[in-house]
Amino acid sequence: MSRERSDGVPGDAPVRRNGVQWPMLIGLTVVWVLLWGGLTVGNVLSGLVVAVVVTLVFPLPPIVFGGRLRARGLAVLIGWFVVELVVASVQVAALALRIGRPPLNAVIEVDLRSRSDLYLTLTAELLSLVPGSLVVEVRRSTSTLFLHVLGVRDESDVEAARRRALRQEERVVRALASDEELAAYLAEGVGR
């Protein structure tokens, strides 16, 4: 999100990669087959052709992913996401139906602790999917998110929203980071 804002950091511009991106090709082909609704040789071949054309016409910047999938962290991440989705959906629904004054909101700054495009993007996506928080601005250079939070009553609600965002990031890192990344992330937290 907001990728054009690299804030003038030299050498920080995303580089477009060349060559065949097999995971991308396979993913696009699977989607194509799903959309046609049948696993036939014709569908797979036409899907591969479309995937090659799409990756050639719209090349994406590479994602730096040096981590590994941690099964336990991933389960915690998905489990908490579902819980938050349900709870927050009910809360926003209650706010929408409440009689009386419309809710107060807040725009808060959250400084994420990791320095990775991937974790920044994933955290922002997950926070946006959970009702009650909306990402209005992203600073890639400092890993800062600006969130619009629905229905705050006082300062303690604002701080609770900030902590919720940081916990979301921690779950993302614990699900995907390598040992070195996780150690650096935890060390960053001690310095705060």
Binding site: V92, A96, L97, L129, V136, H148, L150
Partner: peptide
């Protein structure tokens, strides 16, 4: 309920919550 929120919330950003969120879970 998302549609109700879309009408009842006062400004654009609050409406984005109603418009995008309960509807994802729904």
């Amino acid at each position: 309920i998302a549609a109700v929120g879309l009408i009842r919330f006062p400004d654009l950003l609050s409406r984005m919550h109603a418009g995008t969120k309960p509807q994802v879970f729904g």
